[in-house]
Simulated scan of single mutants.
Amino acid sequence: MTGAGGNPAPSLPGRFGPSFDVRTVVVEPGGSRVYDEAEWRGAIVLLERGRIELVCSDGGRRAFGRGDVLWLEGLPVRALHNPGREPAVLLAISRRPARR
């Protein structure tokens, strides 16, 4: 698995097994990603590396760092911004649909 820009994905995803999907999202230094609630639906998000600020709809910001766990569904957020000097790597971990 590779992350954005062809960078190797972190080693953590393999630890979850076949019942989970793990998606890597990278926000480059100084970059922002428009918030799309559907992108984060049903996922627990681990900030594996770097820093992220959630830019709220009211203009406020909430900062998070390496090791923080987030739930990004249903929030009044406009964007995810990386104020740091290194890429921010987020792992979105969600259950795979049950097989019948």
Rank of each mutant, 00 (worst) to 15 (best):
M1F: 13
T2N: 14
G3W: 05
G3C: 15
A4M: 12
G5P: 06
G5F: 03
N7L: 15
N7E: 15
N7Q: 15
N7C: 12
P8D: 13
A9T: 03
S11G: 14
L12H: 06
L12A: 10
P13N: 02
R15K: 12
F16Q: 03
F16D: 01
P18M: 12
P18K: 15
P18I: 14
P18Y: 12
S19C: 15
S19A: 15
F20S: 08
F20T: 10
F20K: 12
D21N: 06
R23E: 13
R23A: 15
R23F: 10
T24G: 00
T24F: 03
V26P: 11
V27A: 02
P29G: 02
G31H: 13
S32K: 10
S32Y: 08
R33D: 04
R33Y: 08
R33L: 15
V34P: 10
V34I: 13
Y35F: 14
Y35E: 09
D36T: 13
E37N: 09
E37D: 14
E37V: 09
A38E: 12
A38T: 10
A38R: 08
E39D: 08
W40K: 05
W40E: 04
W40S: 01
R41V: 10
R41H: 11
G42D: 11
G42H: 09
G42S: 11
A43Q: 04
V45S: 11
V45P: 10
L46V: 07
L46M: 07
L46C: 01
L47I: 00
L47R: 04
L47Y: 00
G50F: 01
G50D: 03
R51Q: 14
R51M: 12
R51L: 12
I52C: 08
E53Y: 06
L54H: 05
L54E: 06
V55M: 05
V55G: 01
C56L: 15
S57N: 04
S57V: 06
D58V: 10
D58M: 02
D58N: 12
G59M: 06
G60Q: 08
G60L: 08
G60R: 14
A63C: 12
A63Y: 07
A63T: 13
A63E: 14
A63W: 04
F64E: 01
G65T: 14
G65D: 07
R66G: 13
G67E: 06
V69A: 08
L72I: 03
E73K: 03
E73H: 08
G74Q: 03
L75A: 06
L75M: 09
L75F: 05
P76W: 01
P76M: 08
V77I: 13
V77W: 02
V77R: 09
R78L: 11
R78Q: 08
R78G: 03
A79T: 05
H81W: 11
H81N: 10
H81F: 14
N82T: 00
N82C: 01
G84F: 02
G84S: 15
R85P: 06
E86I: 07
E86H: 00
E86G: 00
E86W: 03
P87T: 01
V89W: 04
V89S: 05
V89I: 14
V89F: 07
L90P: 01
A92C: 11
A92I: 04
I93L: 08
S94H: 10
S94L: 10
R95K: 15
R95A: 15
R95S: 11
R96Y: 09
P97I: 06
P97K: 14
R100I: 00
R100Q: 00
R100W: 13
